[in-house]
Amino acid sequence: MAEKRKSGMITHGIAAQNRKARFDYKILETAEAGLVLKGPEVKSLRLGRATITEAYAAERDGELWLFNAYIPEYQGGVLSRFEPRAARKLLLHRRQIAQFLGAVARDGATLVPLDIHFNARGVAKLTLGLAEGRKKADKRQAIAERDWQRDKARLLRSKGRDY
Score class of each variant (00 low, 15 high):
residue 54 E to C: 04
residue 134 R to S: 06
residue 72 P to L: 03
residue 118 F to M: 08
residue 24 D to S: 12
residue 90 L to G: 07
residue 44 S to Q: 03
residue 67 F to P: 00
residue 31 A to G: 00
residue 33 A to T: 02
residue 12 H to R: 15
residue 88 R to P: 10
residue 20 K to L: 13
residue 71 I to F: 04
residue 56 Y to V: 00
residue 79 L to N: 12
residue 19 R to W: 12
residue 14 I to T: 15
residue 42 V to M: 02
residue 102 G to H: 12
residue 142 A to G: 00
residue 118 F to Q: 09
residue 162 D to N: 05
residue 38 K to Q: 15
residue 140 R to I: 09
residue 23 F to V: 11
residue 4 K to M: 13
residue 14 I to S: 06
residue 76 G to F: 01
residue 76 G to Y: 01
residue 157 R to H: 10
residue 132 E to M: 12
residue 70 Y to G: 01
residue 91 L to G: 08
residue 90 L to W: 09
residue 31 A to H: 10
residue 109 A to K: 07
residue 85 R to A: 05
residue 56 Y to P: 01
residue 50 A to S: 09
residue 24 D to R: 12
residue 141 Q to E: 15
residue 13 G to M: 08
residue 154 R to Q: 13
residue 6 K to A: 14
residue 12 H to Y: 14
residue 134 R to W: 04
residue 146 R to I: 00
residue 132 E to Q: 13
residue 57 A to Y: 03
residue 100 F to N: 04
residue 112 V to A: 08
residue 102 G to F: 01
residue 104 V to T: 04
residue 156 L to P: 00
residue 117 H to E: 05
residue 98 A to E: 15
residue 22 R to I: 10
residue 47 L to Y: 02
residue 96 Q to D: 15
residue 158 S to W: 02
residue 158 S to N: 09
residue 89 K to D: 06
residue 80 S to R: 09
residue 116 I to N: 04
residue 121 R to A: 15
residue 109 A to S: 13
residue 41 E to P: 04
residue 143 I to G: 03
residue 53 T to F: 09
residue 52 I to D: 05
residue 109 A to Q: 03
residue 10 I to T: 09
residue 21 A to V: 11
residue 84 P to W: 03
residue 113 P to E: 07
residue 118 F to E: 06
residue 126 L to M: 12
residue 144 A to M: 11
residue 55 A to F: 06
residue 76 G to A: 05
residue 104 V to S: 05
residue 16 A to T: 07
residue 3 E to C: 04
residue 74 Y to I: 01
residue 57 A to F: 02
residue 96 Q to I: 12
residue 42 V to W: 01
residue 137 A to R: 14
residue 15 A to K: 03
residue 33 A to H: 07
residue 57 A to V: 08
residue 38 K to I: 13
residue 152 K to I: 03
residue 16 A to D: 05
residue 67 F to L: 11
residue 51 T to C: 10
residue 126 L to E: 05
residue 95 R to E: 15
residue 163 Y to I: 01
residue 3 E to A: 10
residue 81 R to K: 15
residue 127 T to M: 13
residue 115 D to H: 11
residue 99 Q to I: 00
residue 120 A to S: 12
residue 31 A to Y: 09
residue 124 A to G: 05
residue 92 L to Y: 03
residue 97 I to L: 05
residue 52 I to T: 06
residue 147 D to S: 10
residue 161 R to N: 02
residue 65 W to M: 13
residue 9 M to A: 14
residue 56 Y to C: 06
residue 39 G to R: 09
residue 134 R to L: 11
residue 53 T to R: 14
residue 85 R to T: 13
residue 155 L to T: 06
residue 119 N to F: 07
residue 142 A to L: 15
residue 7 S to Y: 08
residue 130 L to Q: 05
residue 130 L to A: 08
residue 131 A to V: 04
residue 85 R to S: 06
residue 34 G to L: 12
residue 31 A to T: 14
residue 123 V to A: 13
residue 99 Q to Y: 12
residue 113 P to Y: 05
residue 89 K to V: 00
residue 29 E to N: 07
residue 88 R to C: 08
residue 50 A to E: 05
residue 76 G to Q: 02
residue 28 L to G: 04
residue 24 D to W: 08
residue 120 A to P: 00
residue 25 Y to L: 04
residue 22 R to N: 11
residue 54 E to S: 14
residue 77 G to A: 04
residue 35 L to A: 07
residue 7 S to H: 11
residue 76 G to S: 03
residue 15 A to C: 15
residue 107 D to I: 00
residue 52 I to H: 06
residue 1 M to F: 09
residue 116 I to D: 03
residue 57 A to D: 07
residue 66 L to H: 07
residue 68 N to Y: 08
residue 154 R to M: 13
residue 25 Y to Q: 05
residue 95 R to C: 00
